[in-house]
Amino acid sequence: MNILVLLRMIPDVVEELEISNDGKTLDREFLRLIPNETDDHALEEALLLKERHGGKVTVVAPDAPELDDVLFACLAKGADRAVKISGVEPVMGGRAAARLMAQVLTTAPGLLPADLILTGVQSTEDLDGLMAPILSHLLQLPYVDNVTQVTADGPGKTVTAVKEFPSAVRAEFDVQLPAVLGIQAAEKPPRYVPVAKVRAVMKSQHLESAAAPAGVEAGQLEILQMAKPEPAEHAEMLAGDPAQVAGKICEILAARGVL
């Protein structure tokens, strides 16, 4: 099974995010980028499929700071190829990302045809649409989202994708291949790879490069402004050391009849 995993680097929301002077974009100067978490799960699901059924896993990602380390970690985990899309400006939103990915997949040698294209179900900056369904439309492939398990048990023409519904209910879907799946979570947590193994891979393997095509359209949305939300309501903060805070919480619980 030939599996492509599409990975994007996105701002780490644990860090303080700042808005540029134009008021419409993030200030990227001190932005820390990390792999989109659900993309990481997409890689894990791809590696699990490869372990069960054989095949090849290729990770494709637009260039970004720290991306090389991330891609070498993907190789150390078991990916066979890692392709960096070079010459790209940072883009926000699923639409531009999907167009970029679609153009690279159809023009760079050796990426398509693939049996499966796995990527995260969403990123926190998919303002103008989710990347996976847009990509599925552009490539004219079937699409399922919120996938938490993929099994291939037939003659290779379909897979069974398990999709999450509310209330911890899941459902199985029969999906014709090739297909694009938006992964919510892999069957197992993404595997850990020791730093020493990543370093070894850096010496023994290399990253491939694909040039970004010219003229990838930006999104159609006009952003009027970005702002840090000012909540209408905010919690009453309890101060003190842990023991003092615990005492205050006990008083609140007692007053509310919880204790």
Binding site: P242, A243, L259
Partner: peptide, 27 residues
């Protein structure tokens, strides 16, 4: 903190054991 009624700006790993102890004491 925008939906909570009360908030504690601290490490949960420190607050939880202290709260467990306090609840035990109260009970």
């Amino acid at each position: 903190f925008n939906v909570a009624h009360y908030g504690i700006l601290a490490d949960a790993l420190e607050v939880l054991p202290a709260l467990t102890e306090a609840v035990r004491g109260k009970k």
